[in-house]
Structures are given as C-alpha cells and as structure tokens.
C-alpha cells in the first residue's frame, strides 16, 4: 500500500519524486464525482418525461409561467437585502451604542423567528400597520399646511401595496439579517492594522471603511453571499403562501386543478434544482476566478 520514498538505490530518486505516482483503480473509483452522474440521470429522465408524456409536458408549460416571478422576486429581494445587510452589518460594529443595539436587536429578532412566520407577519401585520402610521402622519402634515407631502402619504391605502411587493419586503427584511452577519464577519476578518493605517493617513472612519476595509471584506465574503443567493432562490418558494404566483404557487394551482400531483411537483422540484445548480456553478466559477487573482 505505502510507496517507499526512494530508499531503494535502484530507483532514480529525482525522477521518482518529479513524476506523480499513477493513481490506483481504487483511488479513481473513490475520487470520481459520481453524484454528477446522478444529476445527469435526473436531467435525462426529466427530458424524457417532458417530451414523451403529454401530462408532464402540459405541467411544465403551465408551471413555467411562474419562473419570471420567482426570478424577479429573488433578484429584487436580494438586492434590497444586500443594502439592509450592509447597513445593519456596519451597525453591528458601530461604536454608537444606540445604532449597535438596534442593529443587534434586528438581527436577533429575525433569526429567532421562522421565515414563514416572518413572511405572514410582515405582509399581513407590519405593512398594514405602518400604512396606518403613514395615514396618521399624512393627516397631521396636511392639517399643518404641508399637504403636498401629507396628501400623497394619506392616500396610500392597503390595496395599493400588492402582495408581490409585500413578499419582496418580507424576504429582504429576513435575508437582510442573514447578510448583516456575513458583512460583519467579513469586516471583522480584516486586521485592525488596515483601519489604523487608513486613519493614520488622515482618512475618516467612513472613508477608511469605503476605500480600505469594505473592498477587502466583500471580496472575502463573496462565496458566502453567493450561497445565500442560492438559498434565497429556494426560500422564495415561501412567498406562495401570499398567493404570489411564483412557480411554487402556480404548481399548487395546477395540482389542485388537475389532481396531477406527481407531474406538478416533479416539474417544480426539477425547476428549482435546475436554477440552484446553475447558480451554484456560477458561484463556484466566480470563487475560483477570485481565488486565482487573490494577492496576499
């Protein structure tokens, strides 16, 4: 099993160490990515089902209408979550007691509540309640002669914010807390010498963050951000509980209408799998490229 490393005087030592030892069959079997084969089998099976069985083809045709909503919901929510996450992540390490504690409170609240419950709560309780506040504020502003701000504020009613928008708000608030922790960890991974060097050159805290700390921190956490994007594609399925017509909701509608549960949910699972696999691949390629470029 073990190769002797050149005690044998007959072996030319330099050559032996320069050429890699050929892999044994057992090692090749162990290292081969068999799971990729499994993915191929699933892809071919899915293609076969959709092209040969009309019921699967119909299911795909119906359900794919939701792809647009799934993608746009994820993209909007993720972009907003990035902004919330950056602000809250900076807040978590702020020296200002109020800012730091508010940010921590937000992160801990969100992390302690199931996403599904948060989506219900934000869409059906928090949004209507804040609209009530806007209304009161608008009425007060109008009565104080600031009608140009007050009237549009008071005019926003519960119907004018669609469930799609509420779903995006709910997802971004939820993921904002996750991303805040990623940003915080990234910033804290940068040695304090960097901040000191920047400050010693006369930069303000904000300038040092923007030009020195964040560019390095974000580069460090890009893989984690990518992972959370993939996770959000999957969690966007939860917005179907708000009757947002993403692929999950459309699949449920299709199943309920036709009683073809096998077709509906097989297609649904394969659509998610396709999206997440492609995204994971993109993330992995980006990560590798970044790694190749990394300078000490």
């Amino acid at each position: 099993m073990t190769h002797s490393t050149g005690i044998d005087p007959n072996l030319p030592q330099v050559q032996a160490s320069a050429k890699p030892r050929p892999k044994t069959l057992q090692e090749r079997i162990d290292e081969f990515p068999w799971w990729v084969g499994g993915i191929f089998v699933i892809a071919i099976g899915a293609f076969y089902l959709v092209t040969t069985q009309t019921s699967f083809g119909e299911a795909l045709n119906f359900i794919r209408i939701g792809i647009g909503i799934t993608i746009t919901t994820t993209l909007y929510a993720y972009s907003i979550a990035l902004v919330i996450g950056l602000v809250a992540g900076l807040g978590r390490i702020s020296r200002n007691v109020v800012v730091r504690n508010l940010s921590t409170l937000y992160v801990e609240l969100v992390r302690g509540i199931p996403i599904l419950v948060l989506i219900f709560y934000i869409a059906l309780v928090a949004v209507p309640d804040s609209l009530g506040v806007f209304k009161t504020l608008g009425a007060w502003l109008t009565s104080n002669g600031l009608g140009f701000i007050g009237q549009p504020l008071a005019a926003i009613n519960n119907d004018s914010i669609s469930l799609n928008v509420r779903a995006i708000i709910a997802l971004s608030v939820t993921y904002g807390a996750f991303l805040a922790e990623i940003f915080r960890a990234g910033i804290q991974s940068i040695g304090k010498g960097q901040m000191e060097a920047a400050r010693s050159l006369g930069m303000s805290y904000g300038q040092a963050m923007r030009y020195v700390i964040l560019p390095q921190a974000i580069r460090n956490v890009l893989p984690a951000l990518g992972n959370d994007f993939v996770a959000m594609v999957k969690d966007s399925s939860l917005v179907s509980v708000l009757a947002v017509r993403d692929i999950t909701q459309v699949a449920r509608l299709y199943a309920g209408r036709t009683f073809r549960f096998r077709e509906a949910y097989t297609i649904l699972a394969i659509l998610y799998l396709g999206m997440t696999l492609i995204l994971s691949l993109v993330v992995r390629v980006l990560e590798r490229r970044l790694h190749g470029n990394s300078r000490k």
Partner: peptide, 14 residues
C-alpha cells in the same frame, strides 16, 4: 500632517 510607519507595514493588499 503626521506620517506613520508600522511594524507590519499595513499596506492595502487590494
């Protein structure tokens, strides 16, 4: 107005 040089250089690696 005060330049500072550190033991560990602290150049910006990016």
């Amino acid at each position: 107005e005060i330049g500072m040089v550190f033991q560990l250089f602290n150049l910006f690696p990016h």
